[in-house]
């Protein structure tokens, strides 16, 4: 009896171990969690008779660590702008030349010559947005378009602030507030930044990624936030307004790219071309709540999205800044400041 049980278990294990044999007509996508519209995937599966598996990651760094070791088995990844730059430098992406694909004409020209992939030889736009903050207008009635609300908050916002638990987002916002450049290795300026952040932190309640939940539960009245999250939080808390601070802010773009050594290279290329159709881009935006950079997709996007003040930037706002990856010595200094801030 026990023998039999053991044999069964062994057999089951073996079956599982050999379960994922590579077959024609597969595609393995590795994207941020809860960021891919299942209907869009279904459409692609039907169009090209491909079986798609979809897995999620929680940060660019996790994805990099996993992919860099090789043998991950994934075909498609969706890294942020700076991560595309790093991955190209490390030779992790396949040069699939989307700029020669049939649907490339749909890509908004302003997203072609970008710092992370000049001329688009490796990647195409997926979603893009900004990182600012959103604040309850009934709690704070003054002008919201200044970083001072996070770093030197008025009395009514003290202890009611959530910051993203993201080293780069917090430090970059701090540098802008002080008027210093990004990727900064000037020690005098960093020292000033350090003491400014330590002082500001006393007024923060939390440092967490779960922006929507922090705001809708009324645990905080201001949160550093991505624009799509701010829009979704506003749905449950209409008093929220998304700020475009005069000191400037970060823009970011996630991009579809193909991994070097992708097991299903041809299907990956098909998927890339498919993602440049206005239909697919609109489906993604409707699901993820961000803009996409594909011309002609607006017509198919939900009206609340194309009209949202979080997505459509006012003319008066400064241009978003896309921050390239900083050198290791700068990162070392940043992580010291970050550790000191969080100790």
């Amino acid at each position: 009896m026990k023998q039999k049980l053991l044999t069964t278990i062994m057999a089951t294990c073996l079956t599982f171990a050999m379960g994922s044999v590579q077959a024609a007509g597969e595609l393995h996508i590795y994207n941020w969690g809860n960021y891919t519209n299942p209907e869009m995937i279904e459409k692609f599966e039907k169009m090209h008779d491909v079986k798609v598996t979809l897995d999620g990651y929680d940060s660019n760094e996790t994805m990099l660590a996993k992919v860099e070791q090789g043998g991950s088995g994934y075909d498609i990844v969706v890294p942020g702008d700076y991560m595309i730059a790093i991955m190209i430098k490390k030779g992790l992406l396949e040069k699939v030349e989307p700029n020669k694909m049939s649907n490339f004409k749909n890509v908004d020209p302003k997203w072609v010559d970008v710092y992370w992939d000049k001329g688009r030889n490796y990647s195409i736009p997926y979603q893009w947005g900004t990182t600012n903050f959103t604040v309850d207008k009934t709690v704070y009635k003054g002008d919201i378009n200044t970083l001072a609300l996070m770093f030197d908050p008025p009395e009514e916002l003290k202890g009611r602030i959530n910051m993203l638990k993201d080293m780069n987002d917090v430090i970059n916002a701090g540098l802008r507030y002080l008027g210093y450049p990004r990727c900064n290795s000037d020690k005098a300026q960093l020292k000033e930044l350090n003491s400014m952040l330590v002082k500001a932190k006393a007024n923060w309640r939390t440092m967490d990624y779960s922006v929507i939940e922090k705001l809708t539960s009324k645990d905080v009245d201001l949160s550093q936030s991505w624009n799509g999250a701010a829009k979704r939080a506003r749905k449950d808390r209409p008093e929220l307004a998304y700020a475009y601070p005069k000191e400037g802010f970060t823009g970011w773009m996630d991009n579809v790219a193909v991994l070097k050594g992708a097991p299903n290279l041809e299907n990956a290329k098909l998927f890339m071309n498919f993602m440049m159709t206005p239909e697919a881009a609109a489906m993604t935006s409707n699901f993820a709540n961000y803009a996409n950079g594909i011309i002609g997709s607006e017509a198919m996007m939900n009206a609340d999205l194309t009209a949202a003040p979080e997505i459509v930037m006012p003319a008066s706002a400064p241009a978003p800044e896309f921050v390239p990856p900083c050198a290791q010595e700068v990162t070392d200094l940043y992580s010291k400041i970050w550790t000191n801030l969080n100790k």
Partner: peptide
């Protein structure tokens, strides 16, 4: 690996974008 997302991973992916 591909197709091996467990429930905790699924939830982790949601935390950032709202559970």
């Amino acid at each position: 690996g591909p197709g091996e997302t467990t429930l905790p991973l699924y939830i982790l992916g949601q935390i950032r974008r709202g559970v």
